[in-house]
């Protein structure tokens, strides 16, 4: 109960800011940054399904993001499909890739899971960079990825595209809230807390992990399509392991396993990146230092830490009011 009220208190101002931003006369740069944050947040939320909810570190999520981007690019450019079909294909591509990965990766756990996902995604990156050049454009990538076409609205306009991404982001958030509170979500949380108990009760733990991994891949694929559309460009760098590394850092920074943690993590990361890169070319090093300090002092991430403080504060208030003896 505590957690859901906390989520609401945190979500309301964020929603207000997101809704009001376009009316404050922001620059194109500002709107694009906000759009980028929301897209990466979708990716981080998808990633956190495996990381936060299942407690498994995947180092291969760049594959699902990148494939999503390429699926949209190829669907719209090569096969002439409409944008919506391209996005659907991106979701399917991400999910399908996660499904394939799961056959190898879910045989192992812990650090080995991280290594297998890393190896598989790097394999895909190398293929995209060299062997599949005819499809991926090699290191040059594919320029001119489409923007949505919806009833004659010009989504090349930054503000309109911002609204489009905000709508998708809101939908993803709503779906995540529902999934986390569903009977399925409860079982996933149970598997993270005690896999043996869940299995001994009769839950096919492997299947549950696989489904979660596939959902995570699908959401990441969607983020990939949106990212390609925002940048109007896709290249193999999206598939590179550093992309997987970035999303791990963002999620940890914000607070893995919490509802808003991945979103806040992405926001903090991107804003810091923009700010620091204006000052120095060594921004990544400084960001790394901030990350190290954050993991030392806020091991639960920004939102995780806030959520704990909020819980303590409520307990204290309840005790003071004599509701708990």
């Amino acid at each position: 109960m505590n957690a859901s009220r906390f989520d609401l208190w945190l979500g309301l101002p964020l929603a207000a800011i997101a809704l009001l931003l376009p009316f404050t006369g922001p620059s194109d740069f500002m709107l694009n940054l906000a759009t980028l944050v929301m897209i990466w947040a979708v990716f981080a939320i998808g990633f956190d399904f495996v990381f936060g909810l299942l407690g498994m570190v995947s180092f291969g999520h760049a594959s699902f993001l990148g494939l999503g981007g390429y699926a949209l690019a190829l669907a719209t450019q090569m096969w002439g499909l409409p944008f919506c079909a391209g996005v659907s294909l991106a979701i399917v591509a991400g999910a399908l890739c996660a499904w394939l990965f799961s056959f190898f990766a879910l045989r192992v756990s812990g650090i080995f899971f991280a290594l297998v996902t890393l190896a598989l995604s790097q394999l895909l990156y190398i293929l995209a960079d060299s062997k599949l050049r005819a499809w991926t454009g090699g290191a040059d990538g594919l320029p001119g990825v489409a923007r949505p076409g919806l009833g004659g609205i010009d989504f090349f306009d930054s503000t309109l595209f911002y609204w489009y991404v905000l709508a998708v982001f809101a939908l993803v958030m709503a779906a995540v809230v529902v999934l986390r509170r569903s009977p399925f979500g409860r079982v996933i949380a149970g598997i993270r807390q005690n896999e043996t108990r869940a299995e001994q009760l009769g839950f096919d733990v492997h299947r549950y992990k696989q489904i979660t991994f596939i959902v995570s891949g699908g959401i990441s694929g969607l983020a990939g399509a949106l990212l390609a559309s925002l940048l109007m460009y896709v290249n193999p760098q999206m598939l590179h392991w550093t992309t997987s590394g970035d999303v791990i850092i963002m999620t940890l920074l914000g607070g893995a396993g919490t509802l808003w943690g991945p979103v806040i993590g992405v926001l903090a990361f991107e804003v810091l990146k923009e700010w620091l890169s204006g000052w120095t070319q060594y921004w990544y090093g400084i960001l790394g230092l901030i990350f190290i300090l954050a993991t030392l002092f806020f091991p639960k991430g920004i939102v995780g830490e806030l959520q704990e403080r909020y819980g303590q504060w409520r307990d204290k208030a309840a005790r003071r009011d004599g509701r708990i003896s």
Binding site: L179, S182, V187, G190
Partner: peptide
């Protein structure tokens, strides 16, 4: 959670 597995092998994705 324990009651869920008693009632159904399929767990809904929705509330």
């Amino acid at each position: 959670i324990a009651a869920q597995i008693k009632h159904s092998r399929f767990q809904p994705f929705w509330i």
